[in-house]
Simulated assay, not measured.
Amino acid sequence: MGRLDDKVAIVTGAAMGQGAEIARAYVAEGASVVIADVAKEQGQALADELGAAAHFVHHDVSDAGSWASLVEDANGRFGTVSVLANNAGILRFGDIERMPADEVELLWRVNQLGCFLGMQAVTRTMRKAGGGSIINASSVEGLAGMASCTAYAATKWAIRGMTKCAAMELGPKGIRVNSVHPGMIDTPMTRVHGGDAAMEYGASKVPLRRVGTPADIAPVYVFLASDESSYVNGAEIAVDGGVTSTHAFGA
């Protein structure tokens, strides 16, 4: 406990699943957390659960104005933002021949543009404070390919690339930027694409023979937010049960 004492964190996509577990872990380790999400009911319920150290803000990651308001709110409520967990994202499958352009654009706006705007919004604050940590949620699809996942993977590869560039640009300002690459994680976002059957199939592809849980992901976010990772910058950390260790990933 206390690994994140005095840290002020924004966690996007924090109302449910992986983001909610990150928010819980941050509060447990001493951070003050702004829970940012479009899901009002679930986000407020989580803030109520976590108490005075947490606050919910309705937030659209694809809107620059929403980001400006979010950071201003966080700075005013808890103090200078020192951690951004750029966790918000959506998943859509679609064959190249058939996937509608509006779904491709939606993936880009939420996953890729949202990540960029988040980094942009906190950089000035973190620079003035002397540093901070930005953690961008990519995916194993940002490390390798998968059929019927072209549009989604494009956004996750982009996040991987943006992370590398931002680490070089912001490192001299004391701001570390790293990416986390989860494998198949049992969350509402993944369960909607096949339920238990999808989880069972996913587990069969993992060397550990199970899908991950949000509790498998949150400790990595705690480490990257903490001073323990003060020399970790521009890294890509796969949390996937070993699935990307084989050339057959995605087969």
Rank of each mutant, 00 (worst) to 15 (best):
D6G: 01
D6V: 07
K7G: 04
V8S: 07
Q18I: 15
G19Q: 07
A25P: 03
V27P: 04
G30V: 09
A31S: 14
S32Q: 13
V33N: 05
V34Y: 02
A36F: 04
D37Y: 00
A39N: 13
E41D: 12
A47T: 01
D48Y: 04
E49L: 03
V57P: 00
D60S: 12
V61F: 02
V61N: 11
D63E: 14
W67V: 04
N75V: 03
N75R: 07
F78E: 06
T80A: 15
V83W: 05
L84V: 11
A85N: 12
A88Q: 12
G89Q: 03
E97G: 05
M99P: 00
A101T: 10
D102T: 13
L106Y: 07
L106R: 15
W108E: 08
V110C: 10
Q112T: 14
F116A: 15
G118R: 02
M119Q: 07
V122L: 11
R127F: 09
A129E: 06
A137T: 15
A137Q: 15
S139P: 12
V140E: 07
E141N: 15
E141K: 08
M146F: 08
M146L: 14
A147F: 13
C149P: 01
A151F: 06
W157P: 05
A158L: 01
C165G: 09
C165E: 13
C165L: 14
A166N: 12
M168Q: 09
E169S: 11
R176I: 10
R176K: 13
R176H: 07
V177K: 10
G183L: 13
M184N: 07
I185F: 08
D186I: 06
M189I: 09
M189D: 06
M189W: 01
R191K: 06
H193Q: 02
A197W: 01
A198R: 11
E200L: 09
K205S: 11
K205M: 15
L208C: 07
I217L: 15
P219H: 02
V222D: 07
V222P: 02
F223L: 15
E228H: 04
E228P: 03
E228D: 13
S229E: 05
S230W: 07
Y231I: 10
Y231T: 13
Y231D: 11
N233K: 10
A235V: 09
A238L: 10
V239Y: 08
D240T: 06
T244L: 05
T244I: 14
S245D: 03
S245A: 11
T246V: 09
F249V: 06
F249L: 08
G250L: 00
